[in-house]
Amino acid sequence: MTAPATPAPAPAPTGEVVIRTEGLTKVYPGGVKAVDGLDLEVYQGEIFGLLGPNGAGKSTTAGMLTTRVLPTGGRALVGGVDVVAHPAAAKQLIGVVPQSNTLDRALTVWENLYFHGRFFGMSAKVARRESDRLLEQFRLEERAKAPVLALSGGMAQRLMVARAVMHRPSILFLDEPTAGLDPQSRIALWEILEELHDDGQTILLTTHYMEEADQLCHRLAIIDHGRVLALDTPEALKASIGADTFVTVSTAPVEPAVRQALADRLTGSLTGVTNMEVTDDGLRFGVRGARGVLPAVLAAADESGATVVDLRAEEPTLETVFIELTGKDLRE
């Protein structure tokens, strides 16, 4: 994100804290505790994800960090600025892509960028140049003169990202950035975020899509009921559940007792079985070391009198981690 005349500061060494929250809490009127004593640190240059189901407190957290939601407890610093005490100063440091389309309907695509630049103190000349440059970078130059209502969802989202990074914020916030986007636009947005990251942009995003969290984020906080349940790299989180392979077995309709017998047999015969769970149509378990597991399952099923109709072995996903931590599905 460097331009000849307004060079961005050289990327500082990683490890510096851009966001810090200490006991950050939000209780909405009526007593709903959306965020409950959140302690977070986000480092410069990383893509940090808040992963959790709807209503987990992700957006409220993003809202507090971006001055739009007032915390009821704790504090939050962005780039060293207390967002509650000095919101106007904090707003100079942040770029925000909100969940809904907040583009200025009265203006064209190009004007949306131009005026954003002016809001953030750019001269007319610099704002013009930066608007042109960003439209090119985000492949929107052909739409420069179009009203924003004429943009597709994916293009509107790209324009909002372009707008949010125009003033070179210390941190870019994206609240559920790909919710409602078609798969192609989603991938295009991921690429854009990767490019911004390569240029040194620190990014905090909230999402309930595991793929998004897994693919993009360097570190993740899994949150539910306003609390951090786990915080680590996606790899470490997946490793934390103590199995490197998850096996899903579907059987032809049989008595639950048969499935239970199969589960018991496998638990006894295989080493390192974890998370054994009897499901409606079969069973599911984790195991350390996948070698020889599938033949063993088939053999055990045979002996238990169950017919296997589907058998899958896969690496643990963030979904598995989430279920492990909360006992429920991400989409519930």
């Binding site: 510096e16 804290v17 851009v18 780039g79 210390s170």
Partner: peptide, 24 residues
Amino acid sequence: PTPSTASAGLAPLELPTRSTRAAS
């Protein structure tokens, strides 16, 4: 100077280059 809320250990990264008044 940015509002003096920077706590120890929090690196002053791209601090505002303008005062809040000028920016406002």
